[in-house]
């Protein structure tokens, strides 16, 4: 009897699943009145709750922009903190609508895990940090070094690849979290610390004397980080993709959170008009109203503003734009045309 009850429950659950999935993600988000957005449990500059419990950060801004575009309210976001282990299940099971958790876009994640990376909001890469007194100026001089490395990440594999391909040896010091890594590195348990360059910069910024440590020039991996959604609902993926593209394009065309209201009255530039919905009907094509991008930009600012506010040179983290500059400034940010 127990078995039949179990099977019956499963059948009902399956049926309900069929009914529920008939509703698109956009409809679900709109009827719920809130966007469920997966973020990290805490990564400096990218996502962290402040003293009053408000989530702040570079990835958080993407969630807020999407919420502003879809729901008209940048605060209508339920942030779901996810760990490295739970993030993909949370997304594929439908617990969250999108994941903005500095996740590297890789082949297998895009295909095998059945996710859709909608773009790149930060081009990162793995680097090394060493005390200045160690006297190394290049990662190629690190033969025989002890290296602090977070276990179970792609950084571990990249490190092995880099040392093997350069015919060098190293001794790994496995650690669990970035905070622990800082302690180990400062205590001299390892010669160098390796993680994503943005993480290195954030870590170095917290040291008593940042100038006593150098970040070596070599970047040994490509880590394009971006927001992702589930396979199977392309309309929803389009909304997230073009919201991100809109933020990037807004910087290119000089639309800021300060002047968006003024520009929305109509400008000479037809591309700006199309982004802001005063010309054409791009919003309707993705199932939103004409002002969707206006609201997103007004809420969080354009890509450049988000960058400067959270991780840019005016913040303690002090990251330079580098690869994350607009293509017109020699970077990789290149939003497709709004047409």
């Amino acid at each position: 009897m127990n078995k039949s009850v179990f099977l019956g429950t499963l059948a009902v659950a399956g049926l309900a699943a069929g009914i529920a999935s008939a509703q698109s993600t956009l409809e679900q988000v709109q009827s719920r009145g809130a966007l469920n957005c997966g973020v990290t449990t805490g990564l400096t500059g990218f996502a962290a709750p402040d003293a009053s419990g408000e989530w702040q950060g570079f990835d958080v801004a993407v969630c807020r922009a999407v919420a502003a575009a879809v729901l008209g309210d940048a605060s209508a976001v339920e942030f779901v903190p996810t760990t490295g282990q739970t993030r993909f299940t949370a997304l594929s099971s439908g617990e969250i609508d999108m994941l903005a958790r500095n996740t590297t876009w890789t082949f297998s994640r895009d295909t095998d895990l059945a996710f859709e990376f909608v773009g790149v909001n930060y081009y990162d890469g793995q680097g090394f940090m060493a005390p200045r007194e160690l006297g190394v100026s290049s990662a190629l001089e690190l033969d025989g070094a002890t290296v602090c490395i977070q276990t179970g990440t792609t950084t571990e594999l990249n490190l092995a690849d880099f040392f093997a391909s350069n015919n060098m040896s190293y001794e790994p010091v496995p650690i669990e979290t970035n905070a622990e890594a800082q302690q180990q590195y400062l205590a001299g348990a390892c010669d160098v610390y390796t993680t994503d360059a943005s993480g290195l910069a954030a870590t170095r910024a917290t040291f008593e004397d940042p100038s006593a440590h150098v970040i070596l020039p070599e970047i040994i991996s490509k880590e394009p980080l971006g927001p992702l959604v589930r396979h199977g609902d392309n309309e929803w993926g389009d909304i997230v993709r073009w919201t991100l593209n809109g933020l990037i394009a807004a910087e290119e065309y000089g639309i800021t959170s300060a002047n968006v209201g003024e520009l929305a009255a109509g400008t000479e530039n037809p591309e700006v008009n199309r982004i802001l919905g005063t010309e054409g009907d791009l919003g309707a094509m993705i199932g939103l109203d004409a002002d969707w991008m206006q609201r997103a930009i007004a809420a969080v600012g354009n890509y450049g503003e988000i960058f400067e506010g959270n991780i840019g040179e005016s913040t303690p983290i002090g990251l330079a734009r580098g690869l994350n500059a607009q293509w017109t400034d020699g970077g990789l940010l290149y939003a497709p045309p709004f047409r």
Partner: peptide, 26 residues
Amino acid sequence: VVFIGLLDPIGLSNSIRATTDWNGIY
């Protein structure tokens, strides 16, 4: 529960360290 993303005291200590104000506190 910190491993499944619930913010218990240990999880929160991680989040607190992730703000630029308190990064480096251990």
